[in-house]
């Protein structure tokens, strides 16, 4: 499978997951988007050397994942796949920050290693939360949430159209690149020149399609306004979800529970 086909499959998978039916799926998209944003900001606001305090934050993605019945392995794999950039930048930390911050026996661990671990933890948490958000919320739902958040209609409609036609154009693009690779008898991608005319052809088809869509829209009385049926309402459970998690994040941010627990355990023994 090519890069393109793999990604296409990926979108289709997530799209299918988002059509599931569990209580996280049924929550209003607005509270899911907001809660995820608060989660990410809280995680990112943690001190750069924090490790133990970051760990309890996993309760948010883990419980959502569990409650929605989505496959955890799939999300772990996705997180691993995109980790190289954060890892690459983070790897400089151990080289540059060699102040010893922790001694385990005779082994000194520098601040750089600690902050690297912290970066990777943040990465897993933030990326995980974002992926789970799209796994339990349809893209359409997210767009409608954005509309309710007063994001300009032009952009919301753009997102909806983009998402709709990704499915058509990815299909066209994969057919085209399959046809090319079948005739070029190599495993590598096309050269720049070939790519230029492939992309050019794809672009021509895309503009042709845009013209036909525009005709189809005119045909049904389009006058420049897209009317969306956006009539969701917030229920008590939605508010509770948002407030409950916000309180949890606030507590996790303020108190270092793992250390408290750890101290308790060590004092007890």
């Amino acid at each position: 499978m090519t890069f393109l086909e793999r990604n296409f499959l990926d979108i289709r998978n997530l799209d299918l997951m988002a059509r599931g039916d569990s209580w996280p799926h049924r929550l209003d998209p607005r509270v899911k988007v907001l809660t995820t944003m608060i989660f990410i900001i809280t995680v990112v606001s943690m001190d750069k050397y924090s490790i133990s305090q970051l760990i309890p934050f996993a309760v948010f993605p883990v419980s959502l994942l569990a409650a929605s019945g989505l496959p955890p392995g799939y999300f772990l794999k996705k997180i691993l796949l995109v980790s190289p950039f954060a890892l690459m930048v983070g790897l400089f930390n151990p080289l540059l920050d060699q102040t010893i911050l922790l001694h385990i026996g005779s082994l000194g661990i520098s601040g750089g290693w600690i902050s690297l671990v912290s970066i990777m933890l943040r990465f897993t948490l933030t990326v995980g939360a974002a992926l789970i958000l799209i796994g339990i919320t349809s893209f359409n739902g997210i767009c409608l949430a954005l509309e309710k958040f007063r994001v300009p209609k032009v952009f919301v409609v753009q997102l909806l159209f983009l998402y709709r036609y990704i499915f058509v154009l990815l299909d066209e693009a994969s057919r085209m690149s399959r046809a090319r690779s079948l005739r070029s008898l190599d495993i590598k991608g096309p050269g720049i020149k070939t790519f230029g005319s492939m992309a050019g052809n794809l672009l021509l088809r895309a503009t042709g399609r845009a013209e036909r869509i525009h005709l189809a829209m005119l045909c049904r009385g389009f006058d420049g306004n897209i009317h969306t049926m956006n009539s969701s309402s917030l229920y008590l459970k939605d508010i509770l979800f948002l407030l409950g998690w916000t309180v949890v994040f606030y507590l996790l941010r303020t108190y270092n529970f793992p250390e408290l627990i750890g101290n308790g355990v060590l004092n007890f023994t």
């Binding site: 159209f161 991608g189 096309p190 070939t194």
Partner: peptide, 21 residues
């Protein structure tokens, strides 16, 4: 409206065709 949407989808798809440098 349609052109922007479809061109977005075009860029999205074209980004995924890897070419040889």
């Amino acid at each position: 409206v349609a052109l922007m949407g479809v061109l977005g989808a075009f860029i999205f798809s074209a980004q995924m065709i890897n070419f040889t440098i």
